[in-house]
Computed example of a mutant assay.
Amino acid sequence: MTQESPNRQTKDAHFSFRYPSRKGADAEGFGLDVDVSLPLRGVTAIYGHSGSGKTTLLRCIAGLQVFNKKTCAPDYIARLTVQGDVWQDQARQLAPHKRSIGYVFQEAGLFPHLTAEQNIDYGIRRAANKPSAEFYDHILSLMGIQPLLSRHPDQLSGGERQRVAIARALLIKPKILLMDEPLASLDSARKEEILPYLESLKEESEVPILYVSHSMDEVSRLADHLLMLDNGKVVTEGPLEQVLSRIDVPLPASEAGVVITASVMEKSPQWHLLRAEFPGGEFWLKDNGEVVGQEIRLRVFARDVSLARESYGDTSILNKLPVKVLELGPDADQAMCLVSLGAGQTKLLSRITRRSADHLRISEGQQMWAQVKSVAIVR
Score class of each variant (00 low, 15 high):
Ile296Asn: 14
Gly63Arg: 12
Asp137Ile: 14
Val305Glu: 00
Arg126Asn: 04
Val212Ile: 07
Ala189Leu: 05
Ser350Asp: 14
Val212Gly: 11
Cys337Asn: 07
Ser363Met: 14
Cys60Pro: 09
Ile209Glu: 08
Val291Ala: 13
Val235Gly: 04
Leu170Trp: 11
Asp75Tyr: 01
Gly257Ala: 05
Arg351Leu: 15
Ser215Pro: 14
Pro147Ile: 01
Leu177His: 03
Glu237Pro: 07
Ile101Gly: 06
Thr353Ile: 13
Pro131His: 15
Ser254Val: 04
Val300Lys: 03
Asp180Asn: 00
Leu198Glu: 01
Ile139Asn: 09
Tyr19Leu: 00
Pro239Ser: 07
Lys373Ala: 14
Asp358Ser: 06
Lys175Tyr: 04
Ser50Lys: 03
Phe17Gln: 14
Ser100Arg: 12
Ser205Tyr: 13
Thr81Ser: 09
Tyr103Asp: 11
His49Asn: 10
Ser374Pro: 02
Ser132His: 10
His14Asn: 06
Ser340Gln: 13
Val259Pro: 13
Leu178Glu: 12
Asp314Gln: 15
Ser21Gly: 14
Thr55Ser: 12
Pro74Trp: 03
Val258Asp: 03
Ala128Ile: 09
Leu110Tyr: 15
Gly53Ala: 08
Leu201Pro: 09
Glu134Lys: 15
Val339Ala: 06
Leu142Trp: 09
Ser215Glu: 10
Arg303Gly: 08
Ala332Tyr: 10
Glu4Gly: 01
Ser374Leu: 07
Ser188Asn: 12
Pro269Thr: 08
Pro96Arg: 12
Asn129Phe: 12
Trp271Phe: 15
Lys173Ala: 05
Pro112Arg: 03
Met228Thr: 12
